[in-house]
Amino acid sequence: MRDPYEVLGVPQGASEEEIKAAYRELVKKYHPDKYQNNPLADLAEEKLREVNEAYEYLEKHGMGGYSNGTYQSGGYSSGSYQSSSSYSGNDAYVYQQVRRDIDAGRLADAEAALAGVSIRNAEWIFLSGMISYKRGMYDDAYAKIDQACNMDPSNFEYQRARNTIAQMGNRYRNVSQGQGYNYEDAFCQACQCYLCADCCCNCF
């Protein structure tokens, strides 16, 4: 096991408060929700496990008294692909297989299986969109899943997937803002003037 202090990024002998704060930050950083459907989800899960182990260790050995439960990743892991839709006949079977392939990252297999289905209903288009999503092609994914939503407006799974993509930008912006990103206002314009002047000065 790696040094638990190193894993949590706190100095040896850090206070209980510091350890808890660092732990909470890291849980946020590697949170399964953030990496849902991301091909790198397993790496995030591994990191989170390491963080949990380190925290549990310190809980037992270092921070006496404190015994809140650690964050359980189990509840969040996958589960996204329990097909909620009911399609009849052969296609339903193919779609199940396609979902398993997508989940396991076998995207070429999933694509080939989909190509064999002749009736292109909402589910077909949704799954095709999820393949694009897994490939990091977020605009194709959005367009397809949006189309699936329009074809089957009552399907929550499709809607949730569409919203996740639509919200990616906001999620990113919020982090930037939280860390101090400034939108252009009069003050910043002044800053920019200063920076330009500063760049000029750097020439000499």
Binding site: K34, Y138, D139, A166, M168, G169, Y172
Partner: peptide, 20 residues
């Protein structure tokens, strides 16, 4: 709006990768 969604989706994914 679409350009914003498309451009920021790349950056959102990048930021998640950077955390790993």
């Amino acid at each position: 709006d679409d350009a914003e969604r498309i451009l920021l989706s790349c950056l959102a994914d990048m930021a998640d990768c950077l955390d790993l």
